[in-house]
Write a protein that binds this DNA or RNA. Structure first.
Lengths: 181, 181
DNA sequence: AGCCAGAATGTTAGTAACTAACATCCCAGC
DNA sequence: GCTGGGATGTTAGTTACTAACATTCTGGCT
């Protein structure tokens, strides 16, 4: 094995370099493939879309777990907000820097409006399941999870575009708002 | 004048009929244009995308106004949720029926994931402005507005796919969750 | 070493949403 | 009647993405 992983990484690297140079919309999938030394068809075998070259689903199981351990009487939005905080403590500076690069590219491409949320389906599903396990209705769980991820996405986009402030602060402020404070 | 409006309406009618018959993804823009008796190019002069044939921005100024008149000490998510309720009282049954048709089509098309939110940019902007006018920070306002619209969109999708329950009930339950109850 | 199965990749041809450039038409107002 | 400008048509593209089928490459077995 290995080759599969290597090609995938090569494609993602090529994509990020070109996105940075030419912008997201100025970069064609054909060119990404060429730079990775691979055919365009192969690109689409590794990534379902051009979008997913930039934004993987950032699903983090720690989030869902943390939500489960919130006090039982907490309303769903609050439980999500307080639970998610935990997962955001374990980021090292390199991860944060790369996240920022990706988000800046995403923020600059009009055709990527809503892309972050679109690529968080698995995360939303996991959070929804966590709420259901806490006894919240399936309907209410889905609504709360969608809302929190949307709010969080917006906060991250704002953070990426603004001055170099701490990502933790930005996320915490967002979660305060979403949790109803 | 008039012709411009007529073509636009003809296109939208043709689109909805075909979407209902063949599904969203099974309908090509070329075919919509043909049925409306117009060239494909003309279609794209009236609608920026295939998506927008199905989902216009449903911006309702009543919503933003209602948010403005909430008590000053209410936290942003609560103010949005409670404010928005008002705007949902004035829907007649015909509007609701058509909304349901559109949403069912949207729910059945995988490529339309997140489309409702994407087509609510103006609404989000208006709600953000309303919160800012109430003294909430620009950052927090955007986050809250994005979250509430996402939650509401999710609730509407659920409602459209489920049994024929009242839309008011569905929206009210969603707003309860979003408002932190 | 030589061979085999299956995975990874390539090639080719196509579809469909959208765009640019330029020609034409059609209606309103003089 | 004529004319100017907006609405439309035509043509020719670009780009993301897919289907079908051929080829190559790799790792394990004898």
């Amino acid at each position: 094995m290995g080759r599969r992983f290597e090609t995938r990484a090569a494609l993602q690297d090529a994509a990020l370099e070109l996105f940075a140079d030419l912008g997201y919309e100025g970069t064609t999938t054909a060119r990404i493939a060429r730079r990775a030394g691979v055919s365009e068809m192969t690109l689409f075998r590794h990534f379902a879309s051009k979008e997913s070259l930039l934004l993987d689903d950032p699903f983090d199981p720690v989030m869902a777990d943390a939500v489960l351990s919130r006090p039982a009487d907490e309303p769903p939005m609050r439980a999500l907000a307080e639970g998610i905080r935990a997962a955001w403590l374990g980021l090292d500076t390199e991860q944060v820097a790369e996240l920022r690069v990706r988000l800046r590219i995403a923020a600059g491409a009009t055709t990527l409006s809503g892309a972050l949320e679109r690529n968080s389906v698995e995360t939303v599903t996991a959070l929804t399941a966590a709420l259901v396990a806490r006894g919240v209705s399936a309907e209410g769980s889905g609504i709360a999870a969608s809302a929190v991820i949307a709010g969080l996405s917006r906060a991250l986009m704002d953070w990426a575009q603004g001055e170099e402030g701490g990502i933790q602060d930005a996320v915490y402020r967002a979660l305060d708002v979403l949790g109803g404070r």
